[in-house]
Design a binder for these strands. Structure first.
Length: 958
RNA sequence: GGGCGGUUAGCUCAGCGGUAGAGCGUCUCGUUUACACCGAGAGGGUCGGGGGUUCGAUCCCCUCACCGCCCACCA
């Protein structure tokens, strides 16, 4: 016998182990089976399962289990992401906490080794947590983005893109994170509103130049008063960069400064002369109309600097602290050339962090009298999304991917429907970003990641037969998939064997024996560079593997909208470029889980709900059902524990229905054919089951997860438990052996279908019941996880049975409702009389007398010509039902009840009649709608007549 | 500044052209041997405001208000 409740805690680990051991998670080898593939959005190795993962992975598992049961060769490919910055950060923090020396003191090799150690110890945590969620991933295919295979794929992609001119090295401004001391991409920059100010500075004009500047205006905005100025006012939000100013720009059409273009100003503090240039970038309506230009510290100024051939002066080091000697570049022939710094910073401004430098410069400006005004403002300032510190635009050499070129096929594929987003409106977001895409900076100055496969050696500038002249300042690059290949290329380039790569142990290590020593690029690649290859690198690319042939392109990608740019778009670009086919046919965008107040869950807010704790408390199935039910198409999900409890109860309900079946010997009958059943309730539940199979199948195909959850919930609870089980009781307790046997078999059959349909969403409880119910009846041939998905014929829906059971359900409902309204004690069992019944109703009354008596708690049910005295009437189809409850009736209350009900019908009659009286409605509305309204009117009138007759009798008696 | 969502019962959300739905919560009743993690019943909404299209609008269009998110920019 089943226990009274389901105990998830003891069952989940056992079943999961059994599934895994059975090989059920592996795709079937059946060569005729169509494939169904999902690649997991690889969680960070540092991560632990949060509620967003729970949602995302539940949906993937529902799909995988569904398609597996449908006979597909279903592969859900799992893995984790090395997550460059995040992991490096975590390990660095741990080392510090353990009192270790810092990463720099430790050195690159030792530090990376530490990370690997850490990964081996605790990196797999999230993978075990996915198991707790019931994820039916094929763990034998698990991948990690830094695996040798995936690393080879990364190198191949890098080299190919380079050779195709789609990847290049360039010096330009990047978003620099001074905390991590690395470049980051545009996407990793977050704009945050902060309090700031415009500092208005007066820069003195050189050579004693003066001009007339308007200071008062009339109503039309015309200047009425001028003052003579020997300075020009510029405003800035970043005073600390002024030491790198190389110009002041004014708009070419700005009358105020027309005569100053071409003149110089003297940069305060330093005393350096910088030109006033005319450039459209300067906006005459903003500030003073003149803007200081710092080409090495601002993206707009960078462009201005290039247009005017200005020098680029970088005043900060990699930490964002002031340099003693600012670095200076000039552009020659379109290339940045280092150039000698023109000056040093005054001693008191050296080696200050950005924020101290700002304070110091503002203080100086105030003391020296060139600070004109401080205007407080609130403005958006770029921050590193990981570090949270203010990002610094910085002039560095980095590797860039020509995203614009790669984006075009990715745009086209979605336009043409090769890949479809669900919900579709996310395509707009996708297009918007891809159509305005900027070059993608893929190099990172980190240690944890894929090392850039580029080696540098000196450039040959002159070659004679006996000697060559080498130049080291602008090195030659050897871009190759391996050190060996780079070495070979280099030997070819130098025409000499005496080349080595010491860190790879390649080439002669004899000191002095080499004429050239190559050095590999220090940087690593953006984590998303390797993630972009995920759908094919995990399947074995660049090798032409069987997996790749079978499982690419994948079917559905399930992910959050927050990584459409980071990941989805980039996989599209890389997949199309290297595979020639989209990486997935459908992108299902799931919502973001928020707390019950709608706030994003975050550790700092302390509102996180830990899915593992919820699984412990309420069971995995309950959490999964909640995720499935709430994954509608809204943008965010507000999760509350109560909701999960509700679905835990749902599981218990099913458990108890099975228990009921067991107690009543509803065991599976081998070879049972539902099409042969005779009992109306069995025909009816058979049809309801078919409808549910159809609906759940449709919903999971779409996928429309919440529709599936909804259909399952309603069928199992409101149809099977609330009605079928109740309707079956009299037969199961009765003497009709044949009907009893049929009902037992039908109940067992329907439950089996339920278990199958519910399995993708609630795998544990269904598998457990599948197993337990096999202890009786016919044995199972295998586990539910690999059971065939039900396919039932529509012909099993029986309209007559449906109508008949519908009538019964209505009758019971009417009587129950009535009993409450007249406050009939629960124990009272009045007789029911039905007046004016047609032949069918009379027959039903006989057939279902037992059920009516039980479910509506009646003493008797019979058909009669006239109602007994003191009976309370209700409408029952074409007939009138009456409960003889004279002793309980409050005559006044009963009159009021009838009057209220009649009024309801009158209202409806008026409304419907008005509609039907409208010639336009009759002429233009659809026929069915008109017919429906006519019927509604007739029904309402009939009901009203019956109740009026009853009321008349009541008045006569009273 | 550009874009995308949202505004429906106390709460969380479905519905998206033909008489307003669910779950939870609330209220009433219930020892009917599957289940109190239950059963039965009830109450509760001028579907954010205003226009328009239509025979008919919660649903389509316009507009306003508020809330949320994304992108871009601001010397």
């Amino acid at each position: 016998m089943l226990e009274k409740t389901f105990d998830p805690k003891s069952i989940e680990p056992r079943l999961y182990a059994a599934w895994e051991a059975s090989g059920a998670f592996k795709p079937s080898e059946d060569p005729n089976a169509e494939s169904f593939t999902i690649v997991i959005p690889p969680p960070n190795v540092t991560g632990s399962l949060h509620i967003g993962h729970a949602l995302n992975n539940t949906l993937q598992d529902v799909l995988t289990r569904f398609h597996r049961m449908r006979g597909k060769s279903a592969l859900w490919l799992p893995g984790t992401d090395h997550a460059g910055i995040a992991t490096q950060m975590v390990v660095e923090r741990q080392l510090a906490a353990a009192g270790n020396v810092g990463r720099r003191e430790m050195g690159r090799e030792a530090f990376v080794e530490k990370i690997w150690e850490w990964k081996a110890e605790s990196g797999g945590e999230i993978v075990n947590q996915l198991r707790r969620l019931g994820a039916s991933c094929d763990w034998s295919r698990e991948r990690f983005t830094l695996d040798e295979g995936l690393s080879a794929a990364v190198r191949k992609v890098f080299v190919q893109l380079y050779k195709q001119n789609l990847l290049y090295r360039d010096k330009r401004l990047v978003n620099w994170d001074p905390q991590f001391q690395t470049a980051i991409s545009d996407l990793e920059v977050e704009q945050k509103e902060v309090d700031g100010a415009y500092w208005h500075f007066a820069y003195r004009l050189a050579d004693g130049v003066t001009y007339q500047h308007p200071v008062a205006f009339d109503e039309d905005g015309k200047a009425t008063e001028y003052e003579t100025r020997d300075f020009i006012v510029v405003a800035t939000t970043r005073p600390e960069t002024m030491l790198g100013d190389t110009a002041v720009a004014v708009h070419p059409s700005d009358e105020r400064y027309k005569d100053l273009v071409g003149k110089d100003v003297v940069l305060p503090i330093i005393g350096r002369r910088i030109p006033i240039v005319a450039d459209d970038y300067a906006d005459p309506t903003k500030g003073s109309g003149a803007v200081k230009i710092t080409p090495a510290h601002d993206f707009n100024d960078f462009q201005v600097g290039k247009r005017h051939g200005l020098a680029f002066i970088d005043v900060f080091d990699e930490r964002g602290s002031t340099l003693a000697r600012p670095k200076r570049w000039v552009v020659e022939n379109g290339k940045f050339e280092p150039s000698a710094p023109l000056h040093e910073l005054p001693a008191e401004l050296r080696n200050l962090d950005r924020f101290s430098a700002r304070k110091a410069i503002v203080a100086i400006s105030e003391n020296e009298g060139w600070l004109r005004e401080i205007e407080k403002i609130r403005h958006a300032v770029p921050h590193g999304d990981r570090s949270g510190v203010v990002v610094e635009p910085r002039l560095t050499d980095q590797w860039y991917v020509d995203a614009h070129t790669l984006a075009q096929p990715a745009i086209k594929a979605v336009e043409e429907g090769a890949t479809v987003f669900e919900p579709k409106n996310w395509e707009k977001t996708y297009f918007e970003w891809l159509r305005n895409i900027e070059p993608w900076c893929v190099s990172r100055q980190l240690w944890w990641g894929h090392r850039i496969p580029v080696w540098y050696g000196p450039r040959v500038v002159e070659r004679t037969e006996t000697a060559m002249k080498l130049e080291h300042l602008t090195p030659h690059m050897f871009v190759a998939e391996t050190a060996e290949e780079a070495l070979a290329e280099a030997r070819d380039y130098y025409g000499d064997e005496r080349v080595s790569i010491p860190e790879s142990g390649l080439g002669s290590s004899e000191s002095g024996g080499n004429i050239v020593v190559l050095k590999q690029d220090e940087d690593v690649l953006d984590t998303w560079f390797s993630s972009a290859l995920w759908p094919f690198s995990t399947l074995g690319w660049p090798d032409k593997t069987a997996d790749l042939a079978k499982f690419y392109p994948t079917n559905t990608l399930v992910t959050g909208f927050d990584i459409i740019f980071f990941w989805v778009a980039r996989m599209m670009m890389m997949g199309l470029h290297f595979m020639g086919e989209v990486p997935f046919k459908q992108v299902f965008i799931n919502a973001l889980v928020r707390d019950e107040k709608g706030a994003k869950m975050s550790k700092s807010k302390g509102n996180v709900m830990d899915p593992l704790i919820l699984i412990d408390e309420l069971g995995c199935d309950a959490v999964r059902f909640t995720m499935t039910a709430m994954s509608g198409q809204a943008r965010d999900i507000k999760l509350s524990k109560q909701r999960i409890e509700g679905y835990r109860n749902f599981g218990t309900k099913l458990w108890n229905a099975s228990r009921f079946a067991q107690m009543n010997e509803c065991v599976r009958v081998e070879g049972f054919d539902p099409s042969t059943v005779k009992q109306p309730i069995n025909k009816w539940i058979r049809g309801e089951t078919v409808k549910t199979v159809t609906e759940v199948t449709r919903a999971l195909e779409a996928p429309a997860f919440s529709d599936a959850a909804d259909a399952l919930y309603k069928f199992i609870w409101n149809v099977f438990c609330d009605w079928y089980v109740e309707l079956a009781k009299p037969i199961l307790n009765g003497d009709d052996a044949e009907a009893k046997a049929e009902t037992r078999a039908t109940a067992a059959w329907a439950l089996d279908v339920i278990l199958k349909l519910l399995h993708p969403v609630m795998p544990f409880i269904t598998e457990e019941l599948w197993d337990k119910t096999a202890e009786f009846g016919a044995p199972r041939t295998g586990m539910l996880i690999v059971e065939k998905w039900p396919e039932l014929p529509d012909s099993w829906i029986d309209a007559d049975a449906e109508a008949e059971i519908g009538w019964l359900v209505d009758a019971v409902g009417e009587i129950r409702s009535l009993r409450k309204e007249v406050n009939l004690p629960a124990g009272a069992k009045p007789p029911l009389t039905v007046i004016g019944a047609n032949a069918e109703t009379k027959a039903r009354l006989v057939r279902h007398r037992d059920l009516l008596l039980t479910l509506a708690r009646l003493d008797s049910a019979r058909e009669a010509e006239a109602p007994p005295a003191g009976a309370v009437p209700f409408v029952l189809g074409e007939a009138t039902g009456a409960l003889a409850i004279a002793e309980f009736i409050d005559l006044t209350a009963e009159k009021a009840r009838l009057a209220k009900e009649i009024a309801g019908h009158v209202g409806e009659i008026e409304k419907t009649a008005r509609k039907l009286g409208n010639p336009d409605f009759l002429a233009r509305a659809k026929e069915e709608v008109v017919a429906e309204n006519r019927e509604r009117l007739a029904d309402a009138e009939a009901a009203k007549a019956k109740l009026e007759a009853a009321l008349a009798r009541l008045v006569a008696v009273g």
